[in-house]
Measured scan of single mutants.
Amino acid sequence: LETFPLDVLVNTAAEDLPRGVDPSRKENYLSDEDFKAVFGMTRSAFANLPLWKQQNLKKEKGLF
Rank of each mutant, 00 (worst) to 15 (best):
P50R: 01
N56Q: 14
Y29T: 02
P18C: 06
A13N: 12
K36C: 13
A13K: 14
F64D: 15
Y29S: 07
V21R: 02
K58P: 00
S44G: 12
T12L: 10
E33Q: 11
L57N: 01
P23Y: 07
D16H: 12
L1S: 13
F46R: 00
E2T: 13
P23H: 07
S24C: 15
G62Y: 05
N56P: 00
P18K: 04
G62K: 05
T3L: 08
P18H: 03
N28S: 10
D34S: 05
K36V: 14
L9I: 05
S24V: 09
D16N: 12
A14C: 14
R19P: 15
Q55I: 15
D34A: 07
F46T: 00
N28K: 10
K61G: 04
G62M: 04
S44V: 13
F35N: 00
T42G: 10
N56M: 14
L9P: 02
E27S: 02
D22R: 04
V8L: 14
D34P: 00
R43K: 13
R25F: 12
E60C: 09
N11G: 10
N11P: 05
A47F: 12
N48Y: 09
D16G: 09
L63I: 08
K26E: 02
L6E: 02
W52P: 07
N48A: 14
Q55V: 14
A14N: 14
A14V: 11
R19L: 14
L63E: 03
A37V: 12
L6S: 04
N48G: 13
F39Q: 00
G40H: 10
D7H: 14
P18I: 04
L6A: 06
K53E: 15
L49Q: 05
L17D: 03
P18F: 01
V38I: 09
L6T: 04
N56G: 10
P50M: 01
S44I: 13
V38S: 05
K59T: 09
N48F: 10
N48R: 11
L9K: 02
P50L: 01
L57H: 04
A37K: 13
D22F: 03
Y29R: 02
F35V: 00
T3F: 13
L51D: 10
D22V: 05
Y29F: 08
E60P: 01
L57R: 01
T42V: 07
L57D: 01
V8I: 12
E2W: 06
E15K: 14
V21H: 03
D16M: 11
